[in-house]
């Protein structure tokens, strides 16, 4: 349904950044639907507002009218638009519920899984490896680099070691808080090959501003080549190196500041 509606929409978000996940189109269409409904009301009211300001400016020989706004007929001037707004609200709530259900509640069975661990100030990604099971010896651990295969349904399990972080991939239209003490699962299915930003979108301390990572979406062949080139589960020291580097950078900033 959203793919169909998309043909008639202005595509505002897509003009700003590409869609790289299967559900990005739903959020983009919802954004456009809201833009059209709300934009209509906004410009209508603003236009009428400016018209009134111009029409009823102070002029010689013109006296203001006495209108209380308490009679039934006068109140309709507000009541009718307000029922129309209620209709628009419903028209927004229904697709909102659909999008939310599709993305957050109706979780498809995954082909692949990744474990994502956030900490001050680095991302660690555990790729399941050949056996497609997390927590086994052939897991591939990488820091600040997430490698995934195009057109594959992924399930992610998000954790935090210390404070709140937020796993945000703008091209996926995806954000999810990482909360210490919880494992939060979600899903995505990449549909576009390329390399994009991963952000931490929740304030997480001094070096929050540099807690970025990159996502690499590759074809199956390229992805398998990457899998083969990386020997399993030895790069955890890499995490420590990056964390230490960030911490010493923070100290330097502090001394400078």
């Amino acid at each position: 349904m959203f793919e169909f509606l998309d043909k008639f929409m202005p595509g505002i978000l897509e003009s700003l950044l590409p869609r790289a996940s299967s559900y990005a189109v739903q959020i983009d269409v919802l954004f456009d639907v809201i833009t059209i409904l709300v934009g209509f009301w906004f410009f209508l009211v603003l236009g009428y507002f400016f018209y009134l300001i111009f029409r009823y400016r102070q002029r010689d020989g013109h006296k203001a009218e006495y209108i209380s706004g308490e009679t039934h007929k006068q109140k309709q001037a507000i009541e009718i638009p307000h029922y129309l707004i209620l209709v628009c609200d419903v028209a927004i709530i229904i697709p909102t519920f659909l999008v939310w259900f599709n993305i957050k509640i109706d979780v498809p069975p995954p082909d692949e899984e990744v474990r994502i661990v956030a900490q001050q100030w680095a991302w660690t990604f555990y790729h399941a490896g050949e056996d497609k099971v997390l927590g086994t010896e052939d897991d591939i651990v990488s820091v600040n680099e997430l490698h995934i295969k195009n057109n594959t349904q992924y399930s992610y399990h998000l954790e935090s070691k210390d404070v709140m972080h937020n796993f945000s991939v703008p091209v996926f239209r995806l954000k999810q808080d990482a909360i210490p003490g919880r494992v939060i699962s979600g899903h995505f299915k990449p549909i576009l090959e390329g390399e994009w930003d991963i952000q931490c979108a929740e304030m997480c301390g001094v070096a929050h501003g540099i807690m970025g990572a990159r996502i690499f979406i590759k074809s199956e062949a390229e992805h398998n080549a990457w899998l083969a080139a990386n020997t399993p589960a030895t790069s955890d020291t890499g995490t420590l190196a990056i964390v230490n580097q960030n911490r010493s950078q923070e100290k330097k900033d502090r001394n400078n500041g």
Partner: peptide, 29 residues
């Protein structure tokens, strides 16, 4: 989501009332 969108109604009523107050006025800038 529902309560949040519903809150647009009282806010809109108040703003509409301010706009409607201008109707038939003699506005000093």
């Amino acid at each position: 989501t529902t309560t949040t969108l519903l809150i647009s109604i009282p806010v809109a009523i108040m703003l509409f009332a301010f706009v409607a107050t201008l109707y038939g006025g003699s506005i000093r800038f």
